[in-house]
Design a protein around this nucleic acid. Structure first.
Lengths: 207, 207, 207, 207
DNA sequence: AAGTAACCGAGACGGTACGTCCGGTCTTTGG
DNA sequence: CCAAAGACCGGACGTACCGTCTCGGTTACTT
């Protein structure tokens, strides 16, 4: 989110950010997000929990949302990405299951909903989110689909980006809006039905 | 949103809710949402704009989010729903375009993002949202797909609810998360690609 | 405080005040004064306790202070005035003890302090208080002193009104300001010392 | 009223109380007391007039009454205490005139009445008032009477504290309760009549 | 006996102030 | 110069009451 001080050769003593404070702040943010949720997270609360002055937070993060984004990213890598690669459909299903797992972690959906709300009022944050976070999540899925195309399972003219929109969109839609369950049955049917629309029509894709 | 007191024979009859204040509050909320957005909306601001005491708002709405939901719904019917019914694909496209139009209204996406964030902390509101708002939006799309199935354009065993998840999900995903454009090209390709996955394989769909 | 409807000969149908409500209001006021004190007394609280609409209170009393004054007076006659008349000094002491008893009743000092505070902002109430309440309390003391003068125990040119100011003033001063105890030793010494200043110098006073 | 944080060696060194804000708050309180009186004084009003956040007031004063007490004391020293010392009676009269002058200042009686009312509901404030304010006012009078006793004008066994109760009590009684005038004639007769009760009977005290 | 007008309970209304919380900035002191 | 501590101004929170204003329902007098 923010780089450590460059001890570059420009000779200036520059800033000496306390790594201890940095870690304490991010950790406190994660804990409070889990314990109380996004809405109840306050800078004062983070500062108190981290044993840090408020100014130290304001010095390094431009907004609460930026802090939460960093804490969120730092904590979301705990669920390991699947690496199966057996069939396109199996890969897609595994990736959907992984996405669901990430989003239903304690820190997952609730925080994401809060962030989504702040993106609408914070252009800079929105840019960073759409540049760093969104593509990172899409990439693995896109790669799986491209492998499917190379194997001939997926039509050459299929719009794979659009397919990721539909796959991920359906997951987020249930998570954030409809409240419908995010279970294995859902991901299984979602994967097969969307892949049907991408299939070359000759090679069967089913599971 | 909130019913008038039941004129049942149990309670004493007393002064009723002022419809004038009710309207003024909802209107003020809509105006302030357009002018300043969800984040900057305060109960005090609404009360001042509406020329109303704060208590009058707290008396009838349990939370800011509930008020916003009512204002949102009261103002979202301005875009008229399409009634085409020429072909399944055309219908789906028209409904997607309608959804996009509704969501890109001045009051649309920004407010929705805010609401979505509050749903995570307000169970009662979430229930109402998922009972009243979500199905209302899905229904027309579902009906269009069912007509397609009756005509034989769509497989009998296709999961239509899932298809709506994918269609609407893709739209909301772009609106709230990826920031990708919501244009006519998008809705066109989305409709045809998803419908391909639902097609019976014999009757061609799409244009 | 407020007269009942005069069924005068002016022919007007006039008002028909509910005596039941009147009593309920005064009683509720007294109870709440004892339970919570002057500061915590609210019109809404009285109305709720009395099972009465707020308007019924506002219709008959111009202010909270006026209501409290009525409730105070209605409840302060429970301590019976002494009628001794043995000696001037004994009479004065008895009357001081009576005053102290009245003021240390549960409803006494705390309410008086509150009223005193409101007199400064409510001219009409102040007038009524100084016309009805104050002289009623002074009268018995003044009569006792006048009897002393007639007997020759008190100088003919002594300022008896001033003496009452000093006697009562000392009591209220301890009650409201200094917090010093209002016990029998105090009243005894106060009576004899003040009476010394009034004595004719020939006839001994005091015990 | 409130001490600055102890610069003991236990606590961390940090930002101290702003003397600028302190003064602004006290001054604003005094002005508003004069302009509108005790009843109309609100914390919000003081904060607005002083250009200060409400929290800054709540941080340093536990109640409105405590703030008023400080403002009252800070402003009551404008009338200089007399230092005559000619005769006991003249001294007493001068001190009574001084007390009357202090209490009839614009900020005087109205504020005192309000404070008196709050003392009944605020034990801590009452203690401070009775420890700091009351004795300060009594002391000069007591000293004058003691000088009189040393000179032989006042009986050795006279209760001087009680005499101050009577002298001051009469003044406050007129101010707060009876509304009778506080003029020079009053103080003159009060002084001489009370002193008569204290006199040794041999040395004349009159003026 | 019906009409009617004031009174009643209930409580919604536009407001004001409460005391608290937090945002974002500023100041102090020490490392 | 950074960091902790936390005071500062500002502003919104949700609550409590204010005094006024409808509402039917009730009651006691008039007609």
């Amino acid at each position: 989110m923010r780089e450590l001080p460059d001890t570059g050769d420009d000779g200036a003593p520059t800033r000496r950010r306390s790594e201890r404070s940095h870690r304490a702040i991010v950790t406190a943010t994660q804990e409070l997000l889990v314990e109380r949720g996004y809405r109840a997270l306050t800078i004062e609360g983070v500062a108190a929990r981290a044993g840090v002055g408020k100014q130290t937070i304001y010095r390094w993060w431009p907004s609460r949302a930026a802090l939460v984004l960093e804490a969120y990213l730092a904590g979301s890598d705990e669920v390991v990405r699947p690496r199966t690669r057996t069939s396109t459909c199996a890969d897609v299903r595994a990736l959907l299951d992984w996405l669901v797992a990430v989003l239903t972690q304690p820190i997952g959906g609730r925080v994401l909903a809060g962030l989504v709300s702040d993106l609408k009022d914070d252009t800079e944050l929105a840019e960073r989110f759409q540049r760093d976070v969104v593509p990172a999540r899409r990439q693995a899925m896109l790669a799986a689909l491209e492998r499917g195309r190379e194997r001939g399972e997926i039509r050459a003219d299929a719009d794979l980006e659009l397919a990721v929109d539909a796959l991920h969109g359906a997951v987020f839609y249930r998570l954030l809006l409809s409240g419908a369950p995010l279970d294995a049955a859902f991901t299984k049917r979602l994967a097969s039905q969307v892949l049907l629309g991408l299939s070359s029509g000759f090679v069967p894709i089913g599971d």
